[in-house]
Design a protein around this nucleic acid. Structure first.
Lengths: 211, 211
DNA sequence: TCAGAACGTGAGACTTGCCTCATGTTTGGT
DNA sequence: ACCAAACATGAGGCAAGTCTCACGTTCTGA
């Protein structure tokens, strides 16, 4: 490795002029694409700079290293997912009691519609955590979503014992994650079938837990 | 990349003496461990040689490059999985009609018991295909298993339309794959819960398809 | 209008890791 | 016992890729 700074410590210039702000935004977009296309290790900073229409020097003016670049878009991506997820959580209590079946469909549709690029990047994101610190660091995002989902399940599926809610939420989140990522890898036609069948699977799994 | 040979063409010595055969076996074991621990990219041939108690030169005497090493254990791993899977397929028609629920449990237990190392390596295997030739090359192993499973579903779950069998089989295989790999990353206690709940999920999903 | 701060650049220093090769050792058949 | 083939070794050639740095350009405020 060529890591110099520890724990992605920044120590870099913060863009203040408009010109550099736009440039940094282009870098993040380029990085998202490149990481999504070839994965973290195979992505080169050179390729990212080129796609952003700038030079390597400029990249390192704002990001101390490749990992920091990855972390930055990871954070941005996380925020977007949280917003999406939050929308459902906020309307959760109201709908969950009566209308949870339709809600499941909506959540799945929403995540599926949520930009292919983002999903592709998410695959890289998950795989990163899976290879490097394999057994130590879990999949932070999925874990967080499961924790947020658990309370909602208490309403939608009251038959689940409180102690078991997190387990069920984890099952749902991980299954969705895996199947949507799979759909992403298939052609349009198969993808649609998979997404629809995923709705069926989740509904059938939760059905006996509903009141 | 430093790839010289195309399409993992061998062009290397085949071990004939007992000494070298044993050495090659140690190399494969070491490679499995290292790949499983840190992933393909981060694994160094040096580390593999060292763990096998030999030198890099010897590794390259029998394997043309790093990828060939990976392919070799991939093949070995595939064979083991096929044997495991075949056992269930052979008894399939007999049990499938009456006893498919217990069969689901058995399959899950069997795959879970199937050596942690192997499962860890499988994660690397799947992730490899996912990053490099992202949208092109699918997950060969899971696809193959789904194709083999589809006919069995015709017996166990006769209500599935023939055209839909492969879809359902794919759903089952991918879900199992994802959830067992997840269980692997969790501690013993949580893993057991996840495995048990996976049985529940698969059973509930297939139930309406059974006669 | 001008100084200095912010910004942009890309050649190349430096590191890492794959793989080769020249050299030495072990084995098995005669 | 002896030779040729098989085997083993690890220093280092080489390519790829990360990140720095010295120099040039653009912006901002007084």
């Amino acid at each position: 490795m060529g890591t110099k700074d520890e724990a992605s410590g920044e120590k870099r210039r913060v863009p203040t002029q408009e010109r550099s702000r736009a440039r940094v935004a282009r870098m993040l977009d380029a990085a998202t694409e490149v990481f999504a296309e070839v994965g973290f290790d195979a992505a080169t900073t050179e390729a990212i700079a080129e796609r952003a229409g700038t030079s390597i020097g400029s990249v390192y003016q704002f990001f101390p290293n490749k990992k920091a670049l990855f972390d930055a878009i990871g954070e941005r991506y996380l925020d977007e997912v949280r917003v999406l997820f939050e929308r459902f959580l906020s309307e959760g209590p109201a709908r969950a009691k009566t209308d949870w079946r339709a809600m499941v469909d909506d959540v799945i549709d929403a995540f599926w519609a949520f930009d292919r690029d983002s999903l592709a990047f998410r695959a890289v994101w998950l795989n990163m955590h899976r290879s490097a610190e394999f057994l130590v660091q879990g999949d932070a995002l999925n874990r967080e979503m499961a924790e947020r989902l658990a309370p909602v399940l208490g309403i939608a599926a009251p038959k689940i014992k409180p102690a078991k809610r997190l387990l069920v939420a984890t099952m749902v989140v991980e299954t969705l994650s895996a199947l949507l990522l799979l759909a992403l890898r298939r052609d349009e036609r198969m993808a649609k079938k998979l997404v629809d069948e995923t709705k069926v699977l989740v509904r059938r799994y939760l059905e006996p837990y509903a009141d």
